[in-house]
Design a protein around this nucleic acid. Structure first.
Ligand code: NAD
Ligand code: NAD
Lengths: 224, 224
DNA sequence: TACTAATTGTGAAGCATTTCACATAGTTAT
DNA sequence: ATAACTATGTGAAATGCTTCACAATTAGTA
């Protein structure tokens, strides 16, 4: 992923760096609530189990936000980090598949706080279509494409069975949506300008399983 | 993570490699259902959007499973990969926090197929304690430690609010459980011999947000 | 003002992962 | 049996990421 660095310069920012920026955001939110004025790279690193050098290097890709001898101003840095992540605004999100996982996500209040507003729900089950979930009426999947466009949806969460996920995604792509969070355990095919992130819980259990079986030389939590 | 490579040799296997091994497992499961006898590194790579060299290198860390000129035997490789991941057996799993996410996980049948058997549920809500979820009676969180030990639980899924997650985890650690899958958005403190994996959905949405905002040079799905 | 202590920002070094490229070894066809 | 073809397994090169180490800068103190 490239980011603006000036009039012409551009630099590739690694996926790991962005994931850590998310961690900094989380830590800064805590620190702000706890009324800290400033925070050092050391303290930030301690809270998210990273190294101070890593924290400073990550932030340095985006600018100089700290004060030597003092650290970073918490509220200010949080604002900068929000800007970097693009969560200093509202994202209109739709969710397809109001099943077990889908329902859980709709009820989750933290997403709203970060600007992710789930404003449309879709399903193909007649018992679910028309029903009300947290103030949102479930739409018929048949109207997916038109409603995504008319609703100016920018992100879609896919929580349908793996067998139908690709068809749904093909429709989402046709509606010009460029960001998809996918819970189905399948490799979605999308054009190169569409961003897909996969949430694969089985994969994490498998990692734990691997770690246990090979745990002759133990270690702590996995890194970011 | 180190793995056995012979009587004495040992090699560090990267987290990325293990995640890709999970992808191979998934692809091989499909291929087996579709009655493929063999598969090439090229085809495996195509299915999971990787490079053939990467596939071969990953597998080579664990042995030579292919036949030159032909490829890999699907069923056999799937068995080897299961063994590598440690999912050629049953894992006794407990889940703490039978809320939105927790309930979704209990209902999920795919975990069982991979050997992850959720056999115990815990909550502190009197209305939930004693209730039946998919044949499992929800236990009182007060009995967490003893029931984890008596139930020979090896992995615990934590799906409680972030505010109480650390206390729960302290108890889980005391029960000698060495593997935790955590859904709470918090950095859990555990001794170095306890494995923790975090499932952080907000982080993935944030990545999408970042990608959209910085999407001057678009790209497809993120790599593993 | 001058001095001490703290902490950033960043090239460069060190380490890890991915890709390359090809020798090797098996398959298929004739 | 041989030739042509295919695809693995793997050192070595290339690339990418993390850590090191220190000059630079600021705050605090007297
Ligand atoms: N439940 C879990 O814990 C869990 C864990 C990991 C992955 N997943 C994955 O998440 C996805 C959803 O899982 P779930 O447990 O919520 O399943 P679910 O069956 O509870 O929900 C799926 C929903 O999708 C709807 N649906 C089915 N076909 C549709 C279509 N063509 N158009 C629109 N809607 C359609 C169904 O009506 C249902 O409401 C699956 O791909 C699953 O593999 C689930
Ligand atoms: N729901 C989502 O979509 C979502 C998304 C991302 C992360 N998360 C995280 O997952 C976790 C669970 O989320 P949720 O939406 O399922 O919440 P929830 O409130 O629906 O469920 C939490 C459950 O934990 C139980 N609980 C609370 N305190 C407890 C205690 N001390 N001991 C035992 N049980 C206790 C509650 O009774 C409840 O059943 C939270 O940490 C949340 O931040 C949820």
């Amino acid at each position: 992923m490239d980011i603006s660095l000036g009039p012409t310069a551009r630099k590739r920012i690694s996926e790991s760096t962005i994931h850590r920026i998310s961690l900094y955001y989380r830590a800064l939110s805590f620190l702000e609530k706890e009324n800290f004025e400033t925070v050092s790279s050391k303290e930030l690193a301690r809270r998210e189990k990273l190294t101070p050098a890593q924290v400073r290097k990550d932030l340095s890709f985006f600018g100089s936000f700290g004060t030597r001898g003092l650290g970073y101003p918490v509220a200010e840095l949080k604002a900068k980090v929000s800007k970097i992540l693009g969560i200093d605004r509202v994202w209109r999100v739709a969710l397809v598949g109001v099943g077990n996982i889908g329902s859980a996500l709709v009820s989750y209040k933290e997403f709203i706080k970060q600007g992710f507003h789930i404003v449309k729900l879709f399903d193909n089950d007649q018992r679910k279509i028309g029903s009300n979930h947290k103030g949102i009426i479930v739409s018929d999947i048949k109207n997916l494409r038109t409603e995504l466009q008319e609703g100016h949806i920018e992100m879609v969460v896919v929580a349908v069975p793996a067998t139908v996920a690709q068809y749904i995604v093909d429709d989402i792509v046709k509606a010009d949506v460029k960001a998809i969070l996918n819970f189905a355990p399948i490799n979605l095919k999308v054009p190169p300008d569409v961003h897909v992130r996969n949430e694969n819980m089985a994969m994490e259990l498998e990692y734990l399983s691997f770690a246990m079986v090979n745990d002759h030389a133990p270690k702590g939590a996995g890194k970011v």
